[in-house]
């Protein structure tokens, strides 16, 4: 059995999600190739492939604005014929492309896989994770997106790796669809979906200024910042901070929810965290039902005190 993984990248690295996908693919196939949509020279000089042995670099990507779902789909399809499965991370990146590839191959897609029982049987969350479904696929090629928090990333596998190339097929689409620009959120923190600590704020913060309390607490842990939908809708935090059913799914060692009541859509995105701490003024808030530690109180009093104690202990303790 042979699998293809589509790498999730940023300018500096192959993202953790890529290595989780490789781990998932190993449950399905003995040979796993990794396809990387980045300029070849940049990829070779910048990325750590962890010694992965079969890497396909896509040639002639001159500008990242050519990287549309349409052109990437054509490119993946040009290589698809030898694979029994193609895996994508279930991130905005993977969710955008995978169904297109599936439809053009006339096969179904299995989304957000959290467990692989066999080559045709998978477990995935439905209803915001309030139920799990075991599904089977009778398609000859399996198109799968992987819930990356459910699979431990692969470790270093060897010193060197073999690099193949394939052409980037953008001609058919470049006049019909194009990216103008990508506006990144300025963020020097660890990536939200893979951070060890996530501090998240909700509507109760009340304003973008007050949201800085969340940032200060996150600073202490060198953690990432998350937000509930309500906080994002209110403009306290940017859209890519949103944790939940339709935002990012996280499973850190520690998740601190500040002023988040815990709508099922939010809980869907963080309930697999190892330790959940809720700071809330309402003991009946749903988040308190799932938290390991709950502190009932006024967040504007509790959080500054907590920041003070943590800083003191960190310094002297």
């Amino acid at each position: 059995m042979k699998a293809l993984v589509i790498a999730e990248i940023d300018k500096h690295s192959l993202k953790q999600a890529t290595f989780s996908c490789l781990a998932a693919a190993q449950k399905l196939a003995t040979t796993v190739d990794l396809m990387v949509f980045a300029p070849v020279d940049h990829a070779l000089h910048t990325y750590d492939f962890r010694g992965w042995s079969n890497v396909i670099l896509v040639e002639n990507i001159t500008c990242e604005t050519h990287l549309t779902a349409e052109a990437m789909t054509e490119t993946i399809l040009s290589q698809a014929s030898t694979y029994d499965s193609i895996l994508f991370p279930a991130t905005m990146f993977g969710k955008n492309i995978a169904p297109r590839v599936a439809a053009q191959l006339n096969v179904g897609q299995i989304s957000d896989v959290i467990d692989i029982e066999s080559s045709d049987s998978f477990t995935r969350p439905i209803y915001a994770g309030n139920a799990l479904a075991k599904v089977t696929s009778s398609d000859t090629v399996k198109i799968i997106t992987i819930r990356t928090t459910a699979f431990s990333p692969i470790a270093e596998s060897g010193p060197s790796s073999k690099k193949l190339t394939c052409p980037f097929l953008m001609e058919k689409w470049q006049k019909r669809v194009w990216v103008e620009k990508r506006e990144g959120t300025q963020n020097l923190r660890p990536e939200l979906s893979t951070a060890k600590v996530v501090v998240a704020g909700g509507r109760a913060l009340g304003s973008a200024e007050n949201f800085q309390l969340v940032e200060k607490l996150a600073d202490i842990f060198e953690g990432a910042i998350g937000a509930s939908r309500a906080a994002v809708d209110a403009g306290y935090a940017p859209n890519d901070y949103q944790v939940g059913q339709t935002g990012k799914v996280v499973a850190p060692e520690l998740y601190i929810a500040i002023g988040i009541s815990g709508a099922i859509q939010h809980i869907a995105g963080m309930k697999d965290s190892r330790i959940i701490v809720a700071i809330n003024n309402d003991p009946d808030a749903p988040i308190c039902q799932i938290a390991d530690y709950t502190f009932i109180g006024d967040l504007f009093k509790v959080v500054p005190e907590l920041i003070h104690e943590l800083t003191t202990r960190k310094r002297y303790g």
């Binding site: 991130t91 905005m92 990146f93 669809v177 194009w178 990508r182 959120t185 890519d240």
Partner: peptide, 13 residues
Amino acid sequence: REIDGGIERMAFQ
């Protein structure tokens, strides 16, 4: 479009 690291502006015919 809302993407992983922020916003992407794109266009299609």
